[in-house]
Simulated scan of single mutants.
Amino acid sequence: MWFSPNTDLFSDQAHLLNMLPKDGVLNDYGRVMAVDEADSHFNELMMAAAWQPDSALLNGELVRTVREVAWYADRPFRYVHSGIERQAIRWQGSSLLRLKRRMEELTGQRYNSCLLNLYHNASQGIGWHADVEASEPNDVIASLSLGAARKFALKHKATGELRELTLEHGQVIVMRGETQRHWLHSLLKTKQSVGSRISLTFRCFPEQWRA
């Protein structure tokens, strides 16, 4: 069961507070599904997603991460990130397609791709970055968290100002407007003992990156 903050998605989202003080928009939709449904999606994606280690070229050497990724899209998009060409695979799996449709209903946006990240434990995270390599200006990026609660942080590129929030099982946040131009974001590592987490990042991929 999904809990939408409103039925009129295009006109009635003004109640969603902007979590950023300037130069962008971050809306926190909170937990949008019941625990048993979130559990079901988490378990299916853990088993069925095409997980593989992320990779990058560092000083000419191929480095693979413990964190795993899977990238799905309407078409086999390609782009180069960290010296490595990435290629999407077409949507598959009933859970992922249901989540895509639900995210579109919830946020009033259309998405043609989804990047999944699997963090096996609290020692795995992702450093400060902005999603600019394959972004259009004023891109809308929606993120759904499944699994263990983890701390998500944002840092203003010019001032260093910080914002943090804990993302829980079934929670959705949306970054809009100038956010990627002015803010970096990170999933912070922790020494606490927590379980696995999956993030699903939905966006509309730019035309110039289509294969």
Rank of each mutant, 00 (worst) to 15 (best):
W2Y: 05
P5D: 14
P5S: 07
L9P: 11
F10S: 13
S11R: 14
S11F: 13
P21Y: 04
K22Q: 15
D23G: 01
V25A: 11
V25G: 10
V25M: 02
L26V: 08
N27M: 13
A34M: 11
V35D: 14
E37R: 15
D39V: 07
S40C: 05
E44T: 05
A49W: 07
Q52Y: 07
P53M: 03
S55V: 15
A56G: 06
L57I: 04
L57M: 15
N59Q: 15
G60P: 09
G60V: 13
L62M: 01
V63I: 15
E68S: 08
A70K: 11
Y72F: 15
R75N: 11
Y79C: 10
Y79T: 09
H81I: 08
G83L: 06
G83R: 12
Q87E: 15
A88C: 14
L96P: 11
K100I: 10
K100G: 03
M103F: 12
E105Q: 14
L106A: 02
T107I: 04
Q109V: 13
Q109R: 15
Y111K: 02
Y111R: 11
Y111E: 04
L116Q: 02
L118M: 01
Q124K: 01
G125H: 00
G127P: 02
W128D: 01
E133C: 08
S135L: 09
P137S: 03
D139R: 06
A142I: 06
S143P: 06
L144M: 00
G147R: 00
A149T: 13
H156F: 02
T159F: 09
L162N: 08
R163S: 02
T166D: 06
M175I: 02
E178H: 10
Q180S: 04
S186N: 05
L187C: 02
L187P: 00
K189D: 01
K189H: 00
Q192C: 09
V194G: 10
T201N: 12
